[in-house]
Design a protein around this nucleic acid. Structure first.
Length: 777
DNA sequence: ATAGGGTTAG
């Protein structure tokens, strides 16, 4: 219980800090660091003026060049020293400082210089404008643009590019139309607006409306075709181009390399007049993406020069093939690691299940970006460490890290895993505030979160709001309804999916079949199973077979289930045997259950759930000797029984309970209430069924222990602390036991409450004395 | 000193 207790505290920390944490940490820090330089800037204003005439303009030019050089090398402190020690400064000196700060990502410092600058010229305004654009602060950019005393074509082009990069195609077009004079960059700006925002047909029309495009624009349009995998169109442009530069060759090589046409990529690579790091890297990455790792490595070894990106591409190749040791060797060997290199390794470790190595690297990084955070958060979320994932999300916010779609979706999936509905809703709110709730990627994450947190109606609302549903959206909704036991609804969604013209895939059919299985629709499920190959060209995989065996098993057709299993085109895995074991349990077939469990033990000696299932099966038929042998076997094999616990959220706090819990501060009230309930339940006809306890104890003792099962404690606490009329949502890490299931049905009737219980397998909606699973789980 | 195109990680 102590272990769970720490989980409770951890989770409540997450909640509080998400609500109260200051939003402007980063801003405050930024102003803090910039304060001293402000002072030095103003101090130096009182320089001796008499020297002014002694310094020639050509001297000043030398100082200015020194500033630029320092800034280019990233030494902005040295640049500031030069600037401060200048006897006289031209506006070029100021402009060099501003643009230097901007290219070193010191936006605040750049703005300070700009605001302190005595006589701004047009370039100063333009530099600052590009700074706002680069910082994606379009509003401020537009204010500055409107304030400018005069504008040249550079100003207009900067504004145009700002709108383009942020997806404001129509605004960009307006700027283009209003421009007093246009140059080639303006034309290219409009073209790239269309290309960058996926409006390739408009780009194409614009391109055809004018002759004499520069090579940049040819490359831009060709790149657009490559991104949309329209290789034939890209190649047509490439062949038509009046002249080609290195980028043209790189673009077309990349196009073929990324689309699996490696031999054509290779041919053009050999044919190109010159090759730079980009060309080489494109080829390496092409081989990597096509799983041709050895060929990739050969090219990589031949490269005349490599940069970080080349190394990262090669490392990513090994990561994809789960060869983490080789990836690590390269990572250690590379001379110029950047954030991406670290991120690639972290992602690799996280995906291969080695979360501690991932965390190790994450902690060792000197600089992290939003991808590093997303990678580690996703790593924890996907390996079942939802609490730690959310903990890191909060930490990330506190560090002032910019939240993006990816960090949100990872955290939403963590919420889904631990069923933190309230936190998930807060994230939803923040997504809307940040304007990031659009797009089906985020929509799908929200949808999955609401499904897994037991809020199926809100899930459906989200589902309806996703404007461009992809196959994942449909699959998530179908699987969501299936897990909640709403077979009819799942079928309705499946039908509308087909009407909408979305082709069901193998995942869809797993959802559909499990919907049938969770609702007991044997005939419908059988029909789908046998017709899906003919109807949608989907060949049944082991998951489909498992659903089918589950469906037959639940219906009591254990022989047919076994037959199907014998005739499967592949070897049954642990999940398939698990379906058979579950069916044996429901129908009390100890012999078959024993057989299935033994096979599962051989496949997964660490699966404690199976030991418990089998023990319970023995206990149910009074075979106590076998029960104790199981316990010995578990001990000898070093398998720890996962302790059962349940949890629920009340006012942003997660409360956790386990069997016989005596830690909760409200335990007195809870236990008293349970006694009271017990009395009422017995009047309602409840008889406690003790056959599923994993202990050989006296009958009375057994009943006592059952009464204190974690889900009962959690439900009792929920009724006491959640206002009437609102559903009580309880989660349990294991499958709900039969006695608790029975008891909660009575409780829902006696108290007139809707109780939604998520166990490790599915959802149960209890109300008015019955459960949505129809006692089938 | 300011505006436009190509390679990696999610």
């Amino acid at each position: 219980m102590r272990g769970n207790y720490s989980f409770r505290q951890l989770s409540s920390t997450c909640y509080r800090s998400l609500q109260n944490e200051p939003i402007n940490n980063k801003l405050q820090n930024a102003t803090k660091t910039s304060t001293p330089s402000k002072k030095t800037l103003t101090q130096k204003r009182s320089e001796p003026k008499n020297k002014k005439s002694a310094i020639s303009d050509s001297e000043i030019v030398k100082w200015n060049m020194s500033i630029t050089t320092h800034m280019r090398n990233g030494q902005w402190e040295s640049a500031l020293q030069v600037f401060n020690s200048m006897p006289r400064r031209s506006s070029v000196s100021y402009n060099a400082m501003i643009s230097g700060y901007l290219s070193n990502d010191k936006f605040g410092l750049a703005r300070d210089v700009f605001e302190k600058m005595p006589n701004r010229d047009l370039v100063s305004w333009n530099v600052m404008l590009s700074g706002y654009v680069k910082n994606r602060n379009l509003g401020a950019a537009r204010v500055l643009f409107d304030q400018m005393p005069e504008r040249d074509v550079v100003s207009w082009n900067a504004m145009l590019s700002g709108y383009a990069q942020n997806g404001y195609v129509d605004e960009a077009r307006k700027i283009f139309d209003r421009m007093p004079d246009k140059n080639e960059i303006s034309w290219n700006g409009l073209l790239s607006t269309y290309v960058q925002n996926g409006r390739i047909e408009e780009a194409c029309r614009l391109f055809e409306s004018k002759e004499d495009w520069e090579v940049v624009s040819w490359n831009c349009l060709m790149g657009g075709y490559v991104k949309r995998k329209r290789l034939v169109d890209a190649r047509r442009l490439f062949d038509q181009m009046p002249m080609r530069d290195e980028i043209s060759w790189n673009t077309i090589v990349t196009g073929y390399a990324q689309n699996g046409e490696l031999s054509e990529a290779r041919r053009l690579f050999e044919e190109s007049p010159s090759r730079d790091v980009f060309t080489w890297t494109a080829l390496v990455s092409g081989y990597v993406q096509n799983g041709m790792l050895d060929e990739a490595r050969r090219v990589f070894n031949e490269m005349p020069e490599k940069n970080e990106v080349s190394w990262n591409a090669m490392i990513a190749g090994y990561v994809q093939c789960k060869r983490m040791d080789t990836a690590r060797d390269l990572f250690e060997a590379m001379p110029c690691r950047n954030i991406s290199s670290w991120n690639t390794m972290i992602t690799g470790y996280a995906q291969s299940g080695d979360i501690s190595q991932a965390r190790n690297l994450f902690d060792r990084m000197s600089q992290r970006d939003s991808i590093s955070w997303a990678a580690i958060i996703a790593g924890y979320a996907q390996s079942g460490h939802g609490e730690e994932a959310l903990h890191l999300f909060v930490k990330m916010k506190r560090n002032g890290e910019r939240l993006n779609r990816s960090s949100f979706t990872c955290s939403l999936s963590a919420c889904a895993d631990i069923a933190a509905l309230e936190l998930g809703k807060q994230l939803h709110g923040r997504l809307v505030k940040a304007g990031l709730e659009t797009g089906c990627y985020v929509g799908n994450a929200l949808l999955a979160m609401y499904c897994k947190c037991g809020s199926i109606d809100e899930a459906y609302d989200i589902f309806e709001e996703i404007s461009e549903k992809d196959v994942v959206s449909w699959n998530t909704m179908i699987a969501g309804y299936a897990r909640h036991g709403f077979g009819k609804e799942a079928m309705t969604v499946f039908e509308s999916m087909k009407t909408a013209g979305i082709k069901p895939d193998d995942v869809t059919m797993v959802g559909v079949l499990s919907a049938c299985s969770h609702t007991g629709l044997l005939d419908k499920g059988t029909e789908y199973f046998y017709s899906m190959n003919c109807d949608y060209g989907i060949t049944a995989n082991s998951k489909h077979y498992t659903c089918m065996i589950d469906l037959l098993g639940r219906a009591g057709r254990l022989d047919e289930a076994q037959n199907l299993m014998r005739n499967m085109p592949f070897k049954p895995d642990a999940a398939t045997w698990g379906a058979l074991l579950g069916a044996s349990r429901i129908h009390g077939n100890t012999e078959l259950g024993e057989k299935a469990a033994k096979i599962i033990f051989e496949m997964e000696p660490d699966n404690s759930g199976m030991y418990v299932l089998l023990s319970n099966l023995y206990a149910a038929s009074g075979r106590w000797g076998d029960v104790s042998r199981m316990r010995l076997k578990m001990r000898d094999n070093g398998v720890k029984k996962v302790p059962g616990y349940s949890w629920l959220e009340v006012e942003n706090m997660v409360h956790t309970f386990s069997v016989g819990d005596s830690f909760h501060p409200e335990k007195g009230r809870i236990y008293a209430f349970l006694e009271e309930l017990d009395f009422k339940m017995k009047l309602d006809g409840y008889v406690s069924s003790t056959k599923l306890v994993l202990h050989d104890v006296e009958e009375e003792e057994k009943e006592h222990m059952l009464k204190y099962h974690s889900e009962k404690l959690a439900v009792a606490f929920g009724i006491l602390s959640i206002p009437a009329g609102r559903p009580i949502r309880v989660m349990k890490n294991l499958r709900v036991c039969e006695d608790c299931h029975n008891a909660i049905k009575h409780i829902s009737k006696i108290e007139g409450r809707l109780i939604i219980l998520r166990d490790s397998h599915r959802f149960h909606h209890f109300s008015g004395g019955s459960c949505s699973c129809g006692d089938y789980w």
